[in-house]
Structures are given as structure tokens and as C-alpha cells.
Nucleic acid binder design. Structure first.
Length: 113
DNA sequence: TCTTTGACTGTCG
DNA sequence: GCGACAGCCAAAG
């Protein structure tokens, strides 16, 4: 386990329940700005026994990274909904469920909530 | 060492 | 809003 890997895992584990974050955001929080693809790669290497909220990680657009209909896709949607996250057509509104949604609303006065 | 691949992202039409 | 393109970089063969 490399340090960069551990930081990525920690960043993912830090996502609050009922919230989601993008691959890029995770990479940035792990001290690896611009390494979004590395995050996706690492998620594919997560040991089965390791508890990690991998399903809280989405694309920058809020879309689930898995192909619609695939097993991972359905599993991710299922787990997200179980936490109260709204998944519509394989997509989550980051304006409401994004990890920094509250902060963004304060700064920009965006509607939501 | 080189090439291929990928759970990504921003830009453009 | 969606598809096409280019940039990105680490792992695997």
C-alpha cells in the first residue's frame, strides 16, 4: 500500500453519509490534483474486505461511472438510495448531494436543500 | 522500454 | 444536454 493510495482511501472514507464527491475532488483532497483517473484505478483495486464508501464517488457531472445496467451500476445506485441520495437515470444532482453543496450554497446562494 | 488501457475531465459544436 | 476530441498519468503485459 503506497502513501498516495492510503490518502485516496482516506479521502473517500471522509465523504459524509448521504453525500457524494467526484473523482477529481477525491484526488485533490488526497493531494493529487488532476489525478482523477488514478482514483478510479485504485477503486478497482480495493480489497473485498476493506470497508470503503466507493459508491459515494461519482463523475464530475454527477453521473455514475459504471455503464448503465451493469452490476456495479445497480449496486452503486442501490447503496446511494439507501442513504437517501436521489439517483435519477444514473445521475445524482451534485447541487444538492455534493460534498461541498452546503458551502457552495452559502458562497453562491444557490437554491436547493 | 514501449504500447495499451482505463470506475476521468474540460472544451467545443 | 450529448457526442466527439484531446490531455492526463499510473498500472499491466
Amino acid at each position: 500500500m503506497q502513501d498516495s493510495h492510503a490518502r485516496v482511501y482516506a479521502a473517500i472514507a471522509a465523504i459524509p453519509r448521504g453525500r457524494v464527491a467526484s473523482y477529481g475532488a477525491i484526488a485533490a483532497r488526497a493531494g493529487l490534483p488532476g489525478r482523477a483517473r488514478l482514483v478510479g484505478r485504485l477503486l478497482g483495486e480495493v480489497p473485498d474486505g476493506m470497508e470503503l464508501p466507493w459508491y459515494r464517488v461519482l463523475r464530475s457531472s454527477g453521473q455514475v461511472a459504471f455503464p448503465p445496467g451493469s452490476r456495479g451500476f445497480r449496486e452503486q445506485c442501490r447503496r446511494l438510495r439507501a442513504e437517501g441520495v436521489e439517483v435519477r437515470n444514473g445521475r445524482v444532482p451534485l447541487s444538492r448531494f455534493g460534498m461541498d453543496a452546503d458551502l457552495d450554497r452559502e458562497l453562491w446562494g444557490l437554491p436547493g436543500g
